[in-house]
Structures are given as structure tokens and as C-alpha cells.
Design a protein around this nucleic acid. Sequence first.
DNA 1: ACACCAAATGGCACTTTTTGACATATATAT
DNA 2: ATATATATGTCAAAAAGTGCCATTTGGTGT
Lengths: 162, 162
Amino acid sequence: MSKSAIWCQWTLGAKVFKGHYVNSINEKGRLSIPSKFRDVLSQWNTDHLIITKSLDKCLMAFAYEDWEKMERKASSLSTVRKADIIFKRHVMGSAEECQIDSQGRILVPASLRDYADLKKKCLIVGIVDRFEIWDIEIYEAYMKDALKDPESLRTELAELGL
Amino acid sequence: MSKSAIWCQWTLGAKVFKGHYVNSINEKGRLSIPSKFRDVLSQWNTDHLIITKSLDKCLMAFAYEDWEKMERKASSLSTVRKADIIFKRHVMGSAEECQIDSQGRILVPASLRDYADLKKKCLIVGIVDRFEIWDIEIYEAYMKDALKDPESLRTELAELGL
DNA sequence: ACACCAAATGGCACTTTTTGACATATATAT
DNA sequence: ATATATATGTCAAAAAGTGCCATTTGGTGT
């Protein structure tokens, strides 16, 4: 019993972003953050998100503390090596801070909206310490392509012990 | 004394999901978890399930402890290698925690329902450390196809020592 | 067969979340 | 400054999720 109490504390305490949600962004660029994700953020005592471009055609969103980890990693990158500077310009350089409003929405800045080509239906994908925001059609096309050779994907993953 | 020995034996046996059950999901996405499976979960002291997308057109459900094993494997995967990130987005990214309600049902989140195309009759298949949720028609079509070349399947499985 | 019990399902009321709409405020360009 | 676009606050309708009770189903033992 006490064991289960400890276990519960741990699972409840270790909240991470997970799950797929389809929400719509409106003409003005406002998008609801899934309430489960807001719960995760509230454990960090924040209603702010850092949003930036991914290397894929989607956006990434971080709680500030996890964003800082990215910043720390970035600061250790080279200032001349091409991949490093591209990463810094693209990912670090396009980051913006967004506040969640009283109904749980954010305004996705226009430049980021354009980059990810967010139209109406957006897919919000929780990935542990961050989440991604995709236009749903783009995500589906991406996944369709990604899964178009399921057998070799299975083989590759099986080799990793999955 | 002997009572507790019996109990231990029984719990070890009961910690495994097995069997096929056909239950129906309603318009709001609620689905009864077979009571045998609930018994298995109670051996883990939990009434929560982690549900996520399979590579097939069905869902997978785990008790939290087994899900953690998946998370641990996933966290060791690359953030750039294609197969790895596809797996993380598809399987890890779509995972959701569902609580079993007082009548033994869960609400299957909309995006997962859509993915597996769950309509009315669902097949729930216990597979040792997890169970799968299929739309029954999709499962039947899948199995029909899977078994249409039984001989090569036999050959492959024989190679694994079965 | 029967009664009995547990499991599964259906229905309804209530709550929370998401979305659309509109008014107001702030910024930008001419 | 005026007009235009962009951003923010608030309200209310619609949609989705939850809790609870009642009914149905299916299996059990007598």
C-alpha cells in the first residue's frame, strides 16, 4: 500500500507532455493548448511557452526550464561550424515567448505560423519535455511517407530491441 | 503461510494479459476494459492505462510499469535518425494516460479512436505485458491477410525456435 | 430450467474544454 | 493623423469528457 502510494506520487509528479491532440487555429493565429499540457506547465508554475521552428516543417514548444537546457546546449556549439550555426540561427534564432491567455490559448506569431504552414487543423504532439505543432495535413503526409515502408521500419526498430 | 504462497503464485499468473474480448465503444468513446484485465492491473496497484498507437492500425495499452520500459528504450534513441524519430513521434508521441472509471471503462481519446478507426465492436487482445484494441472488422481483415501464406509464417517462426 | 451475480452497456445530467464571435486595444504604414 | 493590420480580452455557444444510475447480457451453481 505504501509502495503504491510512493508509486502514485512518482507517476503523478513526473508529468510530461504526451498524446496527440487536434485543435484548430483561427484566422488570427490563436490556438488552444490542450488542457493536459496546461496541467504539465502548471507544474513548472508557468503560463508561458517558448515556441520555435523545428528542423521539420513544424514548431516546437518548451516550458522555460527545458528551453534553458536547449540554450545551454546551443551555447556550447561552435560559432563557425556550418551545422552549428545553422542550428543556432534556425532554432535558437526564431524562438518566441508566448503567454497562455485566460481561456488557455496562445497567439502563434505570424512568422512561425507561416513557417509551419498552419492553416486550420493543427496536430499537437507531446514528446516528453516538449511538444510539436503541425498542420495536420503536413503531419499526415509526413507520417504516410515515414510509414510507407513499414517492414523496413519494423526491422530497424526490432534491431534496437523494440 | 500456505495461503500467502498460494496468493503469490496466483498473482504471478494473473499479471499477464491474455484472451480475446469483444466489447463495444460508445459514441463518446467509452470502452469497457475486460474485468480480467482490470484484475491484472490491480496486481500492479493501478487503475491507469497508457494507450498509444501501434505500427498496425490498432492501439496498444500498457500498465504504467511496462510503459516505463518503453520510455526508457525510447529515451536511448537518436533524436535525428529517421526510424528513431518516427517511432518517437508515432508511438511515444501519441501515448495518453487513461483512468479506468468506476464501471471499469476508459475514454479512448479522440485522436486514438480515429487512428484505429474504432467504430462499434472492438476486439481487445491480451498479449502478455500489454493488450491491443482493434476495430473488429479491421482485425479480421488483417488476420485473413496475415494467415494467407501460413507456410512462410511457419518457416519464419520455426527459425525463432517455436 | 431457475435464480443469482458480475460484467458490460445505455442513458442522462453535469462539468470542462474548445471554438467562434465581437469589442477593444496596440502597432504599422501611408 | 488616419487607415489598416495585428493583438488581446471577454462572452457565449458548441463539443467533448465525466460521474452516476439503471438496464441488459451472459455466465454460474443449484
